[in-house]
Every structure is written in C-alpha cells, then in structure tokens.
Amino acid sequence: MQAKLRIKGTVRVCVIGPDGKIKLHEPSWWRRVFGLQGKPMLSRRHNTVTRQGEGLIADLLLAAPTKTKITSASGYIQLGTGWTGNSVKANTRCNAPTGAMEALDSGYPVTNAAFGATGDNVLRFRASFEAGKLNASNINEASLLNGNTAAAVSLAYAQVTPAATVTLVDTLQIDWEITFTGS
C-alpha cells in the first residue's frame, strides 16, 4: 500500500472598514439597476504550497532544522498586485509587492483543534494590516513567508480574487490555513 501525503490550503482576505464592518465593492451596473448593494470585500481562495515551502516543511522535520520556523515572531505575509498565474509553484515572493510585509498576529500559527482531535492537522496563520498601514488598490496576490528579509522562504502563495482595495482607514485581515492529509 502506498501512502499519499497532501498539503492544501486556503486564504481568506477580508477588508474591514472604519465602522468595523466588512466593506462592500462598488455595485456592478446590474446590481445598481436592481437596487442591490455591492458584494462584500471578502475573498476565499485555494493556495499553492510553493517548492520552497515543501523544502521548508521537510527541513522542519529534521532533528536539527536549518531554516527558520514560521512563528508569530518570524512569520510575515506579503501582498502584491502582480498575479499572473504563471509558475505559481516556483514563486518565492509576490510578483509586484505593495506596502510593507505584515508580521503574523500574536499567538499564530495555531491548529484548529487540540492534538488527537479532528482538526489537529490544520495549521492557521493570521496577519492583520491595521488601519493606517496599507493604502493599495488591486491587491491580487499574497505570500506567506518565514521572515521579512531577502533570505526569507515562501511557504505558500495565493491569488486574491476579486482583487482588494484598502485605504488608510481600512483594516485588512488575512487568514491562511494549511491542511495536511494522508491516505
């Protein structure tokens, strides 16, 4: 019997306005005709664990790892506007970075459940770009990194769609889940 290990993930991107509510996109022509408001600025997409990320996971299983583990002290999320869909697995950063990288929120990463319970195989990361930290349009890519220097390794890369627009009064929250499964 052959065992198959799979690593998959999702990224949830949410733009929150100064009133604490999820912001809305401008309504499309069709929605305006029917008097409907715009769709929420909320995106949930699959991500790709990069080639670097696979190596990082393997390194962390060594008795003496050589790479930096992603923790709230060392983990960062980078955003960009250059999604192309080309060579996603080979990406080591965002193609067109925008704004500064944001450190993971305190206490992250965490698992969805205690060891031995359903959900203990899901690792969650979160970074919150608080109001005043980001002012960017057409954010359509994100990368989860183990640092904020040129030596940082990208664990995962994702498309953000629909693209997000964040002003200085908005908060952008990124929730990243990596699930490890086997069969």
Rank of each mutant, 00 (worst) to 15 (best):
P40T: 06
P27Y: 12
A64N: 09
G182A: 13
T171H: 03
G116L: 09
G82N: 06
A151E: 05
Y76G: 00
L104K: 05
R6A: 07
R126D: 11
N121C: 06
G53F: 06
V166L: 03
W176C: 03
E141V: 00
T50N: 02
E141N: 03
A164K: 12
A131M: 08
N91F: 13
T179N: 15
G55R: 07
V33Q: 10
A131S: 13
A150F: 11
T84E: 11
N95K: 03
Q173E: 15
A3S: 14
K21S: 09
V166M: 02
W29I: 14
G147Q: 03
A3M: 13
N121T: 09
N146H: 00
I174L: 12
K21C: 01
R45N: 15
Q37G: 10
C14Q: 13
T10I: 12
T111D: 02
R6C: 13
T98D: 03
V11H: 13
G9K: 10
K69P: 12
R32D: 14
I174E: 07
N47A: 10
I70C: 09
G9F: 02
A150N: 14
T84L: 08
Y157R: 08
I16S: 07
I57E: 00
A142G: 13
A164V: 10
C14G: 02
S28Y: 11
A152W: 01
E130K: 05
E54H: 14
G38N: 11
S87H: 07
Q37N: 12
A114K: 01
W83Q: 05
S106W: 01
N148W: 05
S43K: 01
T84G: 10
E102Q: 14
S72H: 11
N146V: 02
A63H: 05
S154R: 03
A164S: 06
G35Q: 04
G75A: 10
T161G: 09
S72C: 09
L134H: 02
G147H: 01
S137L: 07
